[in-house]
Design a protein around this nucleic acid. Sequence first.
DNA 1: CCATGACCAGATGTGCTTATCTGGTCATCC
DNA 2: GGATGACCAGATAAGCACATCTGGTCATGG
Lengths: 254, 254
Amino acid sequence: MPSPDTDAQARRPEQPQREERAHRILDAAAELILRWGYDKTTIDDVARSAGVAKGTIYLHWKSREALFAALLRRDRVAMLEQVRNAVAGPGGVTPRDLYRHLALALMARPLVRAALLGDTEVLGKLIRQKPKVQTVEAVRSLAGIYLTTLREHGAIREDLTPVEQVNMISATMYGFFVITPQMPEEYQVSGERLADLLAETLHRALDSGRTLSPEQSAAITRATLAYLDRGLGLARDRLHLSLTTSDMGKDYVR
Amino acid sequence: MPSPDTDAQARRPEQPQREERAHRILDAAAELILRWGYDKTTIDDVARSAGVAKGTIYLHWKSREALFAALLRRDRVAMLEQVRNAVAGPGGVTPRDLYRHLALALMARPLVRAALLGDTEVLGKLIRQKPKVQTVEAVRSLAGIYLTTLREHGAIREDLTPVEQVNMISATMYGFFVITPQMPEEYQVSGERLADLLAETLHRALDSGRTLSPEQSAAITRATLAYLDRGLGLARDRLHLSLTTSDMGKDYVR
DNA sequence: CCATGACCAGATGTGCTTATCTGGTCATCC
DNA sequence: GGATGACCAGATAAGCACATCTGGTCATGG
């Protein structure tokens, strides 16, 4: 028999000012983690930088890890929303558009990128102790489903298995994000151009080359948007868990 | 005025048994570095494992670094020879053949791979202290030349600059070699298949798609073999420096 | 109620000493 | 002449005492 108090607290909608404070804290955390890395970013720093007391942070999240999980989740939602908005126009959406805007959005979100790439420089112990990043696994799985759908609509080639294609996509994206920033001066290419290059590479590697009927194109647009919305929905759910008082990040397995 | 002694020593051809011993030492070093990494592989270990005294190693190379440089160079030559032999058949050689055999040869040579990828796990301080791996820069430069040649023969597309294409190739290869071994069990793909995948990806990303005349194809075969032979020549020269008594690895900049 | 910050235990870092290891040399011997 | 391995200085690791830091708690006050 649950106590009425707890239930009331759990159901109480997040007050706007409280949510605003949560975001202020996350903003501070984002800046600090990008400048100093996870290991060297303390709760005290975050509190001071956000203009709140340390205890206040624990009114929002139950641990340091939960706070940073919320931060990553927020950034992930923002990233996906950026992609969603970018492809939101009236015309059709091709897988290639998705690749390109995904690349652009990832380039603009160092934290999501770090999580996806397993960058220990930024994420430190958050990654080192649990190399099993569940996010990456989920992304792979979703990608596999998306590829299968595209395949059914004749958009991508069928002489490679989805598993092989997931390998190919993972490798190519990883390589682009890790290597291109390390290239010497004279090989540097602008971010816009890199996104084009990456999209082009994936497109050429995956595309069936068939000319699609308007119906097929429409189906692919729908599938692409559905895929994006599905990811966005999952990401929003996770973020919601991280921002809701009743949960406070308990779902974040240590 | 050089001393006659030094000249005589420098010109003296390497005795076969001496060279055999050098290779035995390198064999031992190879096994140890792959098992324990550079940092934990000592000269004593190598000497014991090769069945020679420590001083003997210094009759071949003037320092530990020079020994391991020789090792990497030997492996690099072997890798390129593998590629060279693989494409040596009577028929023509396409860039795609080159990509594929390069991938296969690299997969079979962990040391060359480690050097190219900058793997600190294996190479340790050998890399950490001088992140400027001159080899990588040389490879990029040669690749650029090769791409330009291919372009002149109409084999690869012209709507991307060579710099962009070098980025694309670097990123894709890097990603394949780093990510695919880290994929979870259910996504594992055989080495053969991965080489196909990588070659396919590069081919599709770079190929002009034009149908080439027999003359053009022959020119591309020649260019590819010339490129390979040029790399092999350079690699052999470097290896020779590392195995010749007169030099003993002095060229290896610390 | 909720925000605060003093407080604490455990983690992390620091400086130092001691011990061990190891790259490189060279007198010795074959 | 060439191979050896004892030898040494400097590097690296291990141990340790001490100081500092930091995640998380909670009594207090508004």
